[in-house]
Design a protein around this nucleic acid. Structure first.
Length: 264
DNA sequence: AACACGACCTGGTAGC
DNA sequence: TGCTACCAGGTCGTGT
C-alpha cells in the first residue's frame, strides 16, 4: 500500500478527523518503543504533515509523532475508539471519543515520538526532495542525477535522492519516460532526464488523485479513474504501446518490471 | 560509492 | 486438503 500517493491520501483523510483533538491515552501493542503512550498522552494534535513517505503528526510542546507505514501499514481515524478492531497495532484515544488507529499485518511500521526540531533537522539532512514540492525542479533533479552512478531504478527508489517513490511508481515513472531501469542515471541525456523528471511528477500527481478517491471510505462512492499500472506486476503481458512482453528482472533484491522495447 | 544480502514480520498464493 | 516455498507497495545494518 504505501508509497507517496497512498501516504498523502492517508494524511488528507486523517487531517480533518484528528487535528485540534487531544490524545487522551494510547494502547501500544507493537511498532513503537515503550514509553510512547506516556509521551503522547495529554498532547494536542496541531497538524498532520508529510515528507516523502513519512507522516508527521505535530503535537503540542514541540513534539512530533513520526509514523512510517513501511510495507503494509495503514493509519486512519475511527469515530468511536471503543470499536477499535482487534488487529490494530496501536490505538490512540482522542478527547472527542474518536480514535486514531495504526494497523499493520506485518508489524513493520514504525512510530516514534521526537522533538520536532530535531526530527525536522534529521529528515531534511537525510531525505531528498519530495517530488510534489516546488524544490523538485528539473535542474535540482539533474544535479542529483549527475552525482550518482546508480541504475535509474535504484536511484529513484533511494530516499536520500528523491523522497517518496517506491517499487511501483518508480517502475511506472520509468515506463512513462521510456527510460531503461538498468541505465546508470548519470548517463542519461538532459532531454531524457527532463522527461523522467516530468514523468515522476505526473505519475505521482495522478496516483495521488486516484489514491485520494479510492480512499474515500465505505459509503462514499466516488467514481475514481484508478491509476493505470502499465508494467508493475505484469511480467509476460503485452506492453500497451508496442505489445512486447513486459519483462521482470531483479535490482537491489526487488523486482523491476519494464518494457524492453520502449525503455532504452 | 555502489552493491548484495539478511533481518525485521505476517499473510497470501502457486505448486505439488 | 495440507504442506512447502516463495513472494510482497520499505528500510536498516553489515560486509565486500
Amino acid at each position: 500500500m504505501p508509497e507517496l500517493p497512498e501516504v498523502e491520501a492517508v494524511c488528507r483523510k486523517l487531517r480533518p478527523a484528528v487535528v485540534d483533538r487531544k490524545i487522551v491515552s494510547a494502547d501500544i501493542r507493537r511498532c513503537a518503543p515503550v514509553g510512547t503512550a506516556e509521551r503522547v498522552s495529554g498532547r494536542s494534535i496541531l497538524a498532520v504533515a508529510r515528507v516523502g513517505k513519512h507522516i508527521l503528526i505535530r503535537l503540542s510542546a514541540a513534539v512530533t509523532l513520526h509514523v512510517h507505514l513501511r510495507m503494509s501499514g495503514n493509519l486512519f481515524a475511527i469515530p468511536d475508539h471503543r470499536f477499535c478492531g482487534a488487529s490494530a497495532r496501536i490505538l490512540f484515544r482522542l478527547n472527542d471519543g474518536s480514535g486514531m488507529v495504526l494497523e499493520d499485518p506485518r508489524a513493520l511500521a514504525r512510530v516514534e515520538v521526537c522533538e520536532t526540531a530535531e526530527l525536522d533537522r534529521a529528515l531534511s539532512a537525510a531525505a531528498g526532495p519530495d517530488p510534489l514540492t516546488p524544490a523538485f525542479t528539473a535542474a535540482a533533479f539533474a544535479g542529483l542525477a549527475r552525482a550518482s552512478r546508480q541504475p535509474a531504478k535504484l536511484f529513484l527508489m533511494d530516499q536520500r535522492r528523491v523522497s517518496g517513490l517506491g517499487n511501483i511508481y518508480a517502475a511506472e515513472a520509468l515506463y512513462r519516460a521510456r527510460v531503461d531501469p538498468r541505465k546508470p542515471i548519470q548517463r542519461l541525456t538532459k532531454p531524457r532526464l527532463d522527461r523522467l523528471h516530468s514523468a515522476i511528477v505526473s505519475v505521482l500527481s495522478d496516483a495521488v488523485q486516484s489514491a485520494v478517491s479510492a480512499y474515500a471510505g465505505p459509503g462514499e462512492f466516488l467514481e475514481a479513474e484508478s491509476f493505470p499500472i502499465h508494467v508493475y506486476g505484469r511480467e509476460g503481458e503485452p506492453c500497451a504501446v508496442c505489445r512486447t512482453p513486459i519483462r521482470r528482472i531483479s535490482q537491489g533484491g526487488r523486482s523491476t518490471y519494464f518494457c524492453p522495447a520502449c525503455q532504452r
